[in-house]
Design a protein around this nucleic acid. Structure first.
Length: 730
DNA sequence: TTAGTTAAGATTTTT
DNA sequence: TCTTAACTAA
């Protein structure tokens, strides 16, 4: 038998062998979906000599995983095969077709920050109230319109002419105009402009249809209107289109995902082959029981049942903790014990609903010396100093990029403040020249010092732009810019710990550019900048080989782990209060999200919630997530102890009866004191400080070397690092 | 204009 | 709690 088919069930084989025409694979969680896709790609490559394939996913992590698994199946990966996210896929096309948009020398990709700063300018210039028209809200709104392929005019038409819609439409229009003048695309543009390109240019469309005769889309239930349009365009008349998805795992409606895309596939393609994968090979039957019972509470779903022939496995464990620190500590203790019994860290994942929750786990893992990697959330490229320097590079690569220029025109300080900036912008508008050009003008009405600094900056940019044209390498440009921008000396002079760290980060960025140069076919500054704009955190961490995975549940989709910790299962966090406000979907999307989380686990699933958690630094009481009561009692096994762990509150939470440890062994989790690192200092202690005399400790924070204490001396409160401050305990 | 201080306000999820 | 906007003094 073909080794590609080994170990596959009949339906999976059918999916792998279905070469041409439209195919819909309805794949339940853990039904071997990625296996089917990768084997299908391998089958096309090996048995049919077809390499004109593109496979599109949503997250970088899923794309990387897919490519990796294809690599393991085939002797080599042909250049024609593309496995990418929607965004990187479109970037690939747009970079090659930029001339279509009149962007003859490429373009800049605006991330959310640059998008919002442009919107802020627009709101200001249209004399609108920035308190009401918040850049972040406008950014989301406009992105949403782009997902639906609505232009400012089409939006107005559809929405009706209210004061609000008229204003938003005007902002949107002006935003587009300026973005265009800055020769930039935002994230939404990447996909929509690609669709427009393919619609308007038959030659280009034809070219890419021939380049990729076979199109595969993963997580099809999460495609939105514009992504749908893209897929349909690419599939063309040949319709060699294979989509894979599961309506129960649709978790992106807030980004315009249209579940109708998957539900209507058979209508869109009447000659399609539909394959259902319902057997779960991933998880223990305990986990599958929990997950399928929970999801059955949703009304808006296709009636179906996932099942497994896997053994029952360990009980699902539900833990209650007093707060987030104890919760993360509890996970660390278990991770340690798993590790000492021979389980690698990378088999373990910790999930949470929102990125901010990662903090506690990071802290606990760091203190325990356990390697970890955070997916999503804050990236290296999100650091302010990196963004600043990238803004510098953006201007060199695209002198028309006024948004980036404005970001750094006064950083480091050049005496060009808000009023100076206004003057420069006025002048540039009057003369019809770019902002950068304006900086070089003699007659701008600025103070002498500011004017000469501006001119200096202009010269630096001009020189570097010239050097790019003469073929200087990106890293050469970066190094020179680092010096001549004054950034380097500014940070050096500052001399604080903070500024030194920033300098090191900038050095790290230069390293990253050098790294890129080594690997790229024909390295250019512009390509580098384009690429990093789509990067998420997984690509930029140092290469660790074994690490615990930390991520949001959204990021976890499509992945699987032997051991999963799902944390923060409290009302308001999961389901998140913000999503409950959206009455249209109610809590159903949150439940799907919970379902996704549960079905990631292969063997061990630990659920946890806290009695109290912090919100904006304030401790608040919490109640367990509604989803916990939807998990059948028997999933938690029979072995419970009745001991209360944290008897700080007399009355138990609603679910107290369920929330027990499963056996004595695990009791040790709680008998360890959570943080012995504070050197014995605790709030309320009286201490003596050499300089300030006697005071009372109000708070203790941080761990080990980083332990900080706040001490109140009379009416003043001061903060100290315990490690640096000799304190005498009284 | 800048640096330093104070008060408000922020957090859903991703590219 | 932490970041940013607004305010104030120089």
């Amino acid at each position: 038998m073909d080794p590609l088919l080994e170990g596959l069930n009949e339906e999976q084989k059918k999916a792998v062998l279905q070469v041409s025409g439209p195919v819909l694979i309805l794949a339940g969680a853990g039904s071997g979906k990625t296996r089917v896709i990768t084997h299908r790609i391998a089958n096309l490559l090996i048995n049919h000599g077809i390499d004109r394939i593109c496979a599109v996913t949503f997250t970088n992590k899923a794309a990387a995983e897919m490519l990796e698994r294809v690599k393991n199946l085939v002797p080599f990966v042909p250049g024609n095969l593309q496995v990418k996210t929607f965004h990187s896929f479109c970037l690939y096309i747009l970079r090659r077709e930029a001339t279509f948009f009149g962007f003859d020398s490429g373009f800049t990709v605006y991330d959310t920050t640059l998008q919002e700063s442009l919107l802020k300018q627009v709101v200001k210039d249209l004399s609108l109230d920035p308190k009401f028209y918040k850049p972040s809200m406008l950014g989301n709104y406009i992105s949403g319109l782009k997902d639906k392929m609505l232009s400012p005019e089409a939006y107005l038409e559809k929405e009706g002419r209210t004061d609000f819609s008229k204003t938003v439409s005007a902002i949107y229009k002006e935003y587009e105009r300026r973005k265009d003048a800055s020769r930039a695309f935002d994230f939404g543009d990447l996909i929509w402009k690609t669709v427009q390109l393919l619609q308007k240019s038959p030659e280009v469309l034809d070219k890419y249809r021939r380049k990729w005769e076979y199109v595969m889309v993963d997580e099809y239930q999460d495609t939105n209107k514009v992504q749908y349009a893209l897929v349909i365009l690419l599939a063309g008349e040949k319709k060699n289109l294979c989509v894979v998805g599961d309506d129960d795992q649709s978790i992106y409606s807030w980004r315009g995902a249209d579940i109708g895309n998957i539900l209507n596939f058979e209508k869109d393609f009447p000659d399609s082959v539909v394959i259902k994968l319902e057997e779960n090979y991933r998880s223990s039957s305990n986990i599958i029981l929990a997950a399928s019972k929970v999801i059955s509470n949703n009304t808006q779903r296709k009636q179906k049942e996932i099942f497994t022939n896997n053994p029952e496995g360990s009980p699902v464990v539900l833990n209650e903790f007093q707060n987030e620190s104890e919760e993360s500590h509890g996970a660390v203790v278990r991770i340690r014990s798993f590790y000492s019994s021979g389980i690698e860290y990378k088999k373990i994942a910790i999930f949470y609903r929102t990125n901010s929750q990662s903090r506690y786990f990071e802290e606990a893992l760091r203190n325990a010396g356990i390697p970890y990697k955070i997916f999503g959330g804050f990236r290296f490229f999100d650091r302010a100093e990196i963004k600043d320097f990238i803004a510098y590079l953006n201007v060199v690569s695209n002198p028309l990029d006024s948004v980036s220029l404005l970001r750094i025109v006064n950083y480091p300080p050049r005496g060009i403040g808000d009023s100076g900036i206004d003057k420069i912008r006025e002048f540039s508008l009057e003369k019809g020249i770019s902002l950068l050009e304006t900086l070089g003008q003699e007659e701008i009405p600025l103070k002498k010092a500011a004017k000469s600094k501006g001119k200096e900056l202009y010269n630096v940019f001009n020189d570097l732009i010239e050097k790019v044209e003469k073929g200087s390498s990106p890293s050469e440009i970066a190094l020179e810019l680092l010096n001549r921008s004054g950034l380097m000396s500014y940070l050096k002079e500052e001399g604080t710990e903070e500024s030194i760290a920033r300098l090191e980060n900038l050095q790290e960025l230069v390293n990253s550019i050098e790294e890129y140069e080594k690997n790229a076919d024909s390295p250019s500054l512009e390509e580098y900048l384009n690429q990093i704009s789509l990067l998420t955190s997984e690509e930029d961490t140092k290469e660790l080989t074994d690490y615990v995975n930390l991520m949001t549940v959204h990021n976890a989709k499509g992945l699987e782990f032997k051991i999963v910790f799902l944390s923060g299962l409290e009302e308001g966090t999961f389901p998140h209060s913000m999503s409950l406000e959206d009455s249209q979907h109610g809590d159903e999307e949150e439940r799907r999200l919970f379902y996704v989380a549960l079905t990631r686990a292969r063997e061990d699933l630990f659920l946890s919630y806290c009695r109290t958690s912090r919100k904006f630094g304030k401790v608040e009481d919490r109640i367990p997530s509604r989803f916990l009561s939807e998990v059948p009692r028997e999933c938690f096994g029979n072995q419970y102890t009745n001991r209360e762990r944290t008897a700080r509150r007399p009355q138990g939470p609603p679910l107290a009866s369920k929330i027990r440890e499963r056996d004595e062994e695990n009791d040790s989790v709680f008998s360890e004191t959570p943080s012995p690192e504070n050197l014995g200092l605790k709030p309320g202690d009286r201490v003596k400080h050499k300089q300030f005399g006697t005071g009372t400790i109000t708070t203790v924070s941080g761990k080990e070397k980083n332990t900080k204490v706040s001490i109140r001396f009379g009416n003043v409160e001061k903060n100290f690092f315990v490690a640096y401050t000799p304190l005498e305990k009284l």
